[in-house]
């Protein structure tokens, strides 16, 4: 029985055959657009490289007339494969990511977080061509709770972070006191307080205070005093378990 994090996070819970529940962290549109741009640069770069190579062969005419024909034929085939099949092959591979996705820490997976098949990869990548062509279609993914675009829906795939949860290099401010919580909280609410404690090191003081001010009815304090209280509540929750 896992906690539902859906309202405080982009995590999504799936139950595996082992009876255990894993959490996949869906990737948002911004990072995916960056990954797509990177891939577009890679494709354009390789196409130009192939073009230059073919041109050199044709101009130097080392291979004679037949060589020129072969060079331009190879160029056409290479363009076809790079343009259409580069993302298909990379995403169906072990890493489940194109070069752009790998650089941004993303990965394409199945419902259960496993490697996708060739067919799935073909579907999601071919359909992207029409989604890019009609610029409104990619916006659909903004409204999907797991940021899936139409190609993802048809292929049954998800784009997630390679690491399911952020690694937390910094430890937040320590709680100075233990503050008991006067009312009973649901598991999700408890989880929210603990998550605040775990992640607070990444935020500025003002942001922490802003978030905690929402809990004013519970803490009876605002600003830094409120932050102290909530951290104390986190400590109380942890000590109790």
């Amino acid at each position: 029985m896992a906690t539902t994090f859906q309202r405080i996070d982009t995590l999504h819970t799936t139950e595996l055959a082992e009876g255990v529940e894993i959490q996949l962290r869906s990737a948002g549109p911004l990072l995916r657009i960056i990954a797509w741009l990177l891939d577009t640069f890679v494709i354009i770069g390789v196409l130009m490289l192939v073009g230059i190579l073919a041109l050199v062969v044709q101009l130097s005419s080392v291979l004679g007339d037949g060589g020129t024909n072969i060079a331009s034929g190879v160029q056409m085939l290479a363009s076809f494969f790079i343009f259409w099949l580069y993302p298909v092959v990379f995403e169906a591979g072990k890493r489940g990511a194109t070069i752009g996705k790998r650089a941004t820490g993303l990965r394409v997976v199945n419902e259960a977080g496993t490697q996708i098949g060739w067919g799935q990869s073909m579907i999601r990548n071919f359909l992207r061509m029409i989604e890019v062509f009609l610029p409104l279609l990619p916006l659909v993914s903004f409204f999907h709770p797991r940021f899936r675009r139409l190609g993802d829906l048809a292929a049954g795939t998800y784009v997630v972070y390679e690491r399911s949860l952020p690694t937390i290099p910094l430890s937040g401010p320590p709680a100075l006191e233990t503050v008991p919580i006067p009312i009973s909280l649901s598991r999700e609410e408890q989880a929210a307080i603990l998550a605040f404690r775990d992640r607070s090191a990444h935020w500025s003081e003002a942001r922490r205070a802003e978030l905690v001010d929402h809990l004013h009815p519970l803490t009876g304090a605002r600003g830094n005093q409120g932050v102290e209280k909530v951290l104390g509540m986190g400590r109380w929750l942890e000590e109790r378990s």
């Binding site: 029985m1 896992a2 906690t3 595996l16 082992e18 255990v20 529940e21 894993i22 959490q23 690491r163 399911s164 949860l165 952020p166 690694t167 937390i168 598991r187 408890q190 989880a191 603990l194 998550a195 404690r197 775990d198 992640r199 929750l237 378990s241």
Partner: peptide
């Protein structure tokens, strides 16, 4: 997950799973 041991532990075990 049940005890809510926090992102660091859960995240690590989740990745292993």
């Amino acid at each position: 997950q049940y005890r809510m041991f926090g992102d660091r532990v859960i995240g690590r075990l989740n990745d292993l799973a």
